[in-house]
């Protein structure tokens, strides 16, 4: 009995391992964020388009918002830009940008040439706010609920499909549950 059952069980286990491990949809470098379910880190930085103005997420407390980390050196950010513009057009939630370890002039050119999907963009040239948010690779997109809690994080470029599948339902639930 053992002789036949053991190889069969091991074979089944290996198949399960392969199906899960080799799934092309799965990003092996994506890490679960320890921030999910915790308070979004507060920040106050200067506006990337206007150094004399400040951008903070404190006034957003009480509403659901998207926090998107990007940079002009980041190819994935260029890739998701169209999707961000379309998302901004839906006008569902405010989108706050964090321009990470970047150059102000390049960022300004990026936003004027490609279009600006953000309500506000904070300029984090020292990467301190990015560390607080556990950012390790742009683009990263967070969803924060009305209680100021991080409820979702997407690593890798956004697409409309991901937006509709992962973000929109969560926004609806967050609105129904909170605030």
């Amino acid at each position: 009995m053992w002789k036949f059952l053991l190889p069969a069980v091991m074979f089944a286990a290996i198949i399960v391992l392969f199906v899960v491990g080799l799934n092309p949809q799965r990003d092996i470098h994506a890490l679960p964020s320890p921030l999910i379910g915790k308070s979004a880190p507060q920040f106050t930085l200067t506006d990337v388009l206007d150094p004399s103005r400040q951008v903070s997420n404190a006034p957003l407390h009480g509403q659901v918002y998207v926090f998107n980390v990007w940079a002009t050196w980041c190819a994935g950010c260029r890739q998701e830009h169209e999707a961000l513009l379309a998302i901004a057009k839906q006008n569902l939630v405010p989108i706050v940008g964090l321009d990470w370890n970047d150059d102000r002039d390049k960022a300004e050119r990026w936003l004027t040439q490609l279009g600006n999907p953000y309500n506000q963009v904070a300029f984090d040239n020292e990467g301190r706010v990015a560390i607080d948010w556990g950012v390790y690779g742009a683009p990263e997109t967070f969803l924060v609920d009305a209680h100021g809690q991080v409820i979702f994080k997407h690593i890798a470029p956004l697409t409309m499909q991901i937006w509709q599948q992962e973000f929109v339902p969560r926004i609806a639930i967050a609105r129904r549950g909170g605030a």
Partner: peptide, 22 residues
């Protein structure tokens, strides 16, 4: 975390630089 097989001490990534400063 950028080049996940290197330590913060060894990496040249800008994130590693920021983490070393931290």
């Amino acid at each position: 975390l950028v080049c996940q097989n290197e330590s913060v001490a060894d990496s040249n990534a800008s994130l590693a630089d920021d983490l070393r400063r931290q």
